[in-house]
Simulated scan of single mutants.
Amino acid sequence: METVKIKTQYWDMAANIYHPPGFNAQKQYPAIISAHPIGSCKEQTAGNVYGEALAEAGFVVIAFDRSTQGQSGGEPRYIEDPALAVEDFSRVTDYLVTLPYVDADRIGVLGICGGGGYAINATMIERRIKALVSITGVNYGRLCREGFSGFDPIGQMERVAAQRTAEARGEALQVDLFVPPSMEVATEAGITDIDVLGATDYYRNRCINDNAGTRALFSRRAGSAVWDAFHLSETLLTAPMMVVVGDKPGGFGAYRDGLEIYARAAAEVKELVVVEGFSHYDLYDQPEPVGQALAKLIPFFQENL
């Protein structure tokens, strides 16, 4: 694995590049951009699970930290702004096409959770991306208008506006945790949703990493509430696409979102993979569901890149 910095006009982005076995810099390889979940970082499932597996299958894989998150630059920290997040895919693509060992005509993208929603939207905009895989992808805009706002998007946007004014006047930033700090806290709070519990177990127990923020700056959330990952997908989402979801739905809505984008996408080549008996966070790192996903998505990328 190689750690690199991607220079932008604003700040540097941090990324890890995974090379195939027997890598030869004099050859050219298909490349895949691997996008981490919301609240996550490049070292977690985007890199250490899907990145490593795809590299082993013969691809150059780049897993990156989104701007303001992980080891990437950008201030203030922990902005979860879809417009900024989607632009990062083009920045990573710009970097890939400068590498002599990357075939610029064979670049694909894989995104997990909110990274999957961002990857879907980025694929509509960034025509250099030739194939797309969404792993338990979530439309973050829809989630912000619904569960993350308590189903009161207007009320939340008013609170966001008030908080941004307060911060502009020098008051402290409000940074909200996406998941409880421990499973014990989640249990004491009476949380039963399979996705919240799965997130807590993953980030607090199964794959702890200091670069994973698991939080977002509240005063920058308004942009998420007006954004839709799937807007114009009937017209613009034409790249070959695979959507992978578990069949045990939870509060973050990946199952529902996966079926929706599969139905709406204009792509002539598209496949829906439902991994039976598993939920959203099982597809992050659990061997059986991840193995089922890889058994589908590796041949998909091989055929379409």
Rank of each mutant, 00 (worst) to 15 (best):
S34T: 10
V109S: 04
S40L: 07
H36T: 07
I125P: 00
T214E: 02
A15K: 01
I154W: 10
V275P: 03
E126R: 08
A161N: 03
A172G: 02
M241N: 03
N205D: 15
E188A: 15
V226I: 07
Q163L: 03
L259Y: 15
N24F: 01
G116D: 04
Q71C: 13
E126H: 11
E234Q: 08
V109K: 01
L297F: 01
G251Q: 04
T93G: 03
G251Y: 03
V273H: 04
T136E: 15
G253F: 03
R256N: 02
G111H: 03
E288T: 04
E87Y: 13
P153L: 09
G74C: 10
P21N: 00
G198V: 15
D201N: 14
E260C: 12
R169D: 10
G190L: 14
S90I: 05
T238V: 05
E56A: 00
Y95T: 05
L132N: 02
E158M: 13
F230Q: 06
V275T: 09
T93Q: 09
D81N: 14
A35I: 15
V275E: 06
G47I: 00
S72I: 12
Q174F: 04
Y255D: 08
V109L: 09
W227T: 01
V138S: 10
E303G: 12
E80D: 12
M242F: 08
S90Y: 10
P180K: 02
C144F: 11
D210V: 11
V61S: 00
I261E: 08
A122S: 04
E188L: 15
I79P: 00
E171F: 01
G291F: 08
R128K: 15
Y95A: 05
R256Y: 02
D152A: 08
A15L: 05
P82Q: 11
V61G: 02
E52K: 06
Y10F: 08
V97T: 12
T238Q: 04
G251T: 03
D282R: 13
M241G: 01
N139Q: 15
A267Y: 06
G108T: 09
Y18D: 02
G117S: 07
N211C: 06
V179R: 02
Q286D: 14
S34P: 15
M1Q: 03
L132E: 01
V109M: 06
V290R: 07
L217S: 01
A263N: 07
D152C: 10
K296R: 05
Y95C: 04
C41G: 04
P20V: 00
K296D: 00
T238L: 02
V138M: 10
D257L: 07
C207R: 13
A104N: 09
P37W: 00
D193Y: 11
L283D: 12
S219K: 04
E268R: 15
Y255E: 09
I17C: 02
E260T: 14
V60G: 05
E2L: 14
V92C: 04
G111P: 11
D12W: 05
Y29M: 05
P21I: 00
R77Q: 11
L84Q: 11
A166Q: 12
G258Y: 10
Y202A: 13
S40W: 04
V92I: 08
F89K: 06
E171A: 00
G258R: 13
Y18T: 00
A239Q: 09
Q286F: 14
S224V: 08
A229T: 12
L173C: 02
V175H: 02
A263G: 13
I120S: 03
G115L: 03
A186G: 09
L177R: 12
L305Q: 14
S224Y: 07
